[in-house]
Structure formats: C-alpha cells, structure tokens
Computed example of a mutant assay.
Amino acid sequence: MPEGLQRYVFVYGTLRRSGRNDINRLEPTPQFIGMGAVRGRLYHIDWYPGLTLGSDEAVDVVGEVYAIEPALEALLDGYEGIESGLDSEYFKRDLEIDVDGRAYPCLVYEANPAFVRGKTLIGHGDWILFSSGANSIS
C-alpha cells in the first residue's frame, strides 16, 4: 500500500502486546510501528477498558501504533462493536499520534461516554499495568 494511503491504529487495551486479545494474533498481521500516547481518561469497563479523549483531568494513555490493512480494520470494527448511531459502544476517531518524533494519522476507538459512566477510572492510563495487578486507580 502506498505511504499516503497507509492506515494506522492506536491500541490501548486488550489488543496491546501481551493483552488478552493481542492484535498480533489477528489476520492480516499488523506491522508494529512503536509506542505512543493520547491525552484522555481510561476506564475499567469490565474485562476491557474504554478511553475517552480530552478533558481537564486527562492523563497520558499509553498504547501501541500499528500499520493495518483494510481487512484488519473491518475485523477490529466488528470486535469493537462499531454501529451507526449514538448507541455504539465505541466511536472511531482519527488522531495524530507521535511515535519517536514522527506523527502518524491513527484510528482510535473511543468509548461512548454513556458506557463509562459510573465505571472505575484508571488514573495512570496504562491498561496492561492495571490488568497485571497494579490496580492503581483514582
């Protein structure tokens, strides 16, 4: 795929390496680009997290950036339960994410605020750290 048409995704939860649903086990295989972060709030929804972007109390939510093919994006959409309308659990957002000084235009799956209401806020922004037992919350 030509450079200008390449699609990237930022994963921050169970899709991260060593996560419950490691993206590297999916097909077509993504290409790891590097680590990045977005400003937002990370919530413990259930066995998986949800990210809301921005806010005055935002922290750096860490994740991984991957180059993906359209077929993998379609698979991820299904996995994240993307639906048209306001009832979708996640919404697709496009953000530039810095990886080693280079900005990548990334797809980010942002949680619907209605789905994180009343859920536990993960104060440090790292799902892997949280899910491994270092349950630092705020």
Rank of each mutant, 00 (worst) to 15 (best):
Glu110Lys: 04
Phe10His: 10
Gly78Val: 03
Glu73Phe: 13
Glu110Gln: 12
Arg93Tyr: 02
Asp87Val: 02
Leu86Trp: 11
Ser138Gln: 02
Glu73Pro: 00
Gly36Gln: 00
Lys92Ala: 01
Gly78Cys: 12
Thr29His: 13
Glu64Leu: 02
Val59Glu: 03
Arg7Ser: 09
Tyr90Ala: 06
Thr14Trp: 08
Met1Asn: 12
Arg102Phe: 00
Ile128Thr: 12
Gly101Ala: 05
Asp126Lys: 08
Leu42Thr: 09
Ser88Pro: 01
Phe32Gln: 04
Leu129Val: 14
Asn135Cys: 14
Ile45Arg: 07
Gly19Ile: 09
Val65Asn: 08
Asp98Asn: 10
Glu80Ile: 07
Gly123Ile: 06
Val62Ala: 05
Val11Gly: 03
Lys119Trp: 02
Glu83Pro: 00
Glu83Arg: 15
Arg93Gly: 02
Tyr90Met: 07
Gly36Leu: 03
Ile68Met: 04
Asn135Met: 14
Cys106Asp: 01
Tyr8His: 09
Thr52Cys: 09
Leu26His: 12
Gly50Val: 04
Ala134Lys: 15
Leu42Gln: 00
Glu27Ile: 10
Val59Phe: 05
Glu89His: 09
Asp126Ile: 12
Tyr90Gly: 10
Phe130Lys: 06
Pro2Val: 01
Ala103Val: 01
Val65Met: 06
Gly133Cys: 08
Gly123Val: 06
Asn21His: 15
Glu57Ala: 14
Asp77Lys: 12
Tyr43Ile: 12
Ile82Pro: 07
Ser136Gln: 10
Glu110Tyr: 06
Val62Gly: 00
Phe10Pro: 01
Ile45Leu: 13
Ala67Met: 10
Ala134Asn: 14
Pro70Val: 11
Glu64Arg: 00
Val108Lys: 05
Val38Trp: 00
Pro113His: 12
Phe115Met: 14
Leu15Ser: 04
Tyr104Phe: 15
Ala71Ile: 08
Leu86Arg: 14
Asp77Glu: 08
Arg16Ser: 06
Val59Asn: 00
Ala37Cys: 09
Asp56Ile: 10
Val38Met: 11
Asp94Trp: 10
Glu80Asp: 05
